[in-house]
Design a protein around this nucleic acid. Sequence first.
DNA 1: CCAAATATCTTGCTATGCAATACATAATAT
DNA 2: ATATTATGTATTGCATAGCAAGATATTTGG
Lengths: 119, 119
Amino acid sequence: MDEMDAAMALVEKWRSQSRKGFLDLCALSLLASRDESYGLDMMEALAQAGLEVSEGTLYPLLARMTREGSLSPSWTTPETGHPRKYYRLSPTGQLVLAAMREEFDRNVAALRRIEGGTR
Amino acid sequence: MDEMDAAMALVEKWRSQSRKGFLDLCALSLLASRDESYGLDMMEALAQAGLEVSEGTLYPLLARMTREGSLSPSWTTPETGHPRKYYRLSPTGQLVLAAMREEFDRNVAALRRIEGGTR
DNA sequence: CCAAATATCTTGCTATGCAATACATAATAT
DNA sequence: ATATTATGTATTGCATAGCAAGATATTTGG
């Protein structure tokens, strides 16, 4: 089936676009529920929840949010093991998360209205 | 409150990012429930549902989806009024919509898991 | 000492949202 | 007739995020 292949290719392209911004919300939400975490640990937790995120995506995201003031990182060198950079929400980050959640929920509600009875 | 302003500015920047891809899903969903519609009419319907979309956003989106094969447009000149370009879902577009819905729902479910009990 | 594991960071590419602007035609007012 | 407003669609340019691929650094095990 040719039609199917075309559709799948389109959706694959769409996938990475549709994650823009959404991953910010996921990362902030994760930190809100875990209090603090580091890169690889977050990757594993997100995957556990069903969301595969690569390093090339997550690390720039964490760097940006730190630069913007939503995250407060702190290096920690455990007695045994590799040094880790732990992130936690800053006060600004908590405000940002709350606003993002509101907006996201509004958008989902709008989508449901748009879908109308067609589901 | 300074902290609040910083957060609002960040969320404003985030907003347009978070709509990438999401608007594709909304447009396809709208056409699925309406069978056919034209640009300004879609803008109005989306706004009615709580989603403000500008022309500079919607028209390129419709042009792209047409180019990709998800939409089948057809010009219509009514007896009275301005010529309109009506869009409807192509067979490919219906497959794309179904796949997008699945993925979107999976992502929302993942987010809810990530949020855990913190809401 | 070398290889594998753990952990973080960088570069380059592609693609979308959106403000601003432009263009065209139909209806209405003067 | 003619100007103005309303309706309708399209384009340009910029900023920004996701991601594959690869680089870097440290710790541990053979």
